[in-house]
């Protein structure tokens, strides 16, 4: 554990809490892609199956359980509790275009051809692209509420901090997880354009982020 890793996990937690609290308080999930949230729930489910096989640390176990619980709570709020507000007309990204290549790749490129390893690899690749329905939705409607953009900012920050964590771990303990690093870098690139808009628009006091 290093400071980048811890800050990355905290950013991830903050992002998910921001989204949950926003939906709960406003009693609305307008502008939120339910598809992205289902994909994230699928990411956590397939990655954290090792909760049943190995024990790493209390921190590790607690964080995994919290991420799982909060991602399912988010999906529940969007599709059940506040489904009347769910903006399905603008959440039209074709998820199968992500799932099919990701499933294919996880069978081809993995550390071991076992169910748990393939599911873990699937979760890593899927996380890299899971935000695409949300970004697609913002592009389609041309705007995002500032709370939604804060959520995306903390998600992107989490990814950037994980890259710093890998650089640190590579130098201090010669740790290098090729699958996680390559897909993590790809994932971070998706946030770059958004980061630029966030800094130039949202941080300068706009209530909404309106695309140029």
């Amino acid at each position: 554990m290093n400071v980048f890793r811890l800050a990355g996990d905290v950013s991830h937690l903050v992002a998910i809490i921001i989204l949950l609290v926003k939906i709960w308080r406003s009693k609305s999930c307008a502008g939120i892609s339910g598809k992205s949230q289902v994909l994230f729930a699928l990411v956590f489910t397939t990655r954290y199956l090792d909760l049943f096989t190995v024990f790493i640390s209390a921190y590790n176990t607690i964080m995994k359980v919290v991420f799982l619980a909060m991602s399912y709570a988010t999906v529940y709020l969007i599709y059940m509790r506040f489904r009347n507000m769910y903006d399905s007309e603008n959440d039209t990204f074709r998820v199968e275009f992500l799932l099919v290549p990701v499933i294919g790749l996880s069978f081809l490129e993995n550390y071991a051809f076992t169910p748990l390893e393939i599911l873990w690899t699937f979760s890593i690749f899927l996380e890299a692209v899971a935000i695409m329905p949300q970004l697609f939705m913002i592009t389609k409607t041309g705007e995002a509420e500032s709370i939604t953009t804060h959520y995306l900012f903390f998600l992107g920050l989490y990814r950037a901090l994980y890259i710093a964590n890998w650089v640190w771990r590579y130098h201090t303990e010669e740790f290098f997880d090729q699958i996680a690093v390559v897909s993590g870098v790809v994932q971070t690139i998706f946030y770059c354009d958004f980061f630029y808009l966030y800094v130039t628009r949202v941080l300068r006091g706009k209530a909404k982020m309106i695309l140029p």
């Binding site: 996990d9 640390s57 590790n60 290098f176 997880d177 996680a180």
Partner: peptide, 10 residues
């Protein structure tokens, strides 16, 4: 070490 042996990251 490789990622396969110890997956301690979230």
């Amino acid at each position: 070490h490789k990622g396969a042996d110890m997956k301690d990251e979230l």
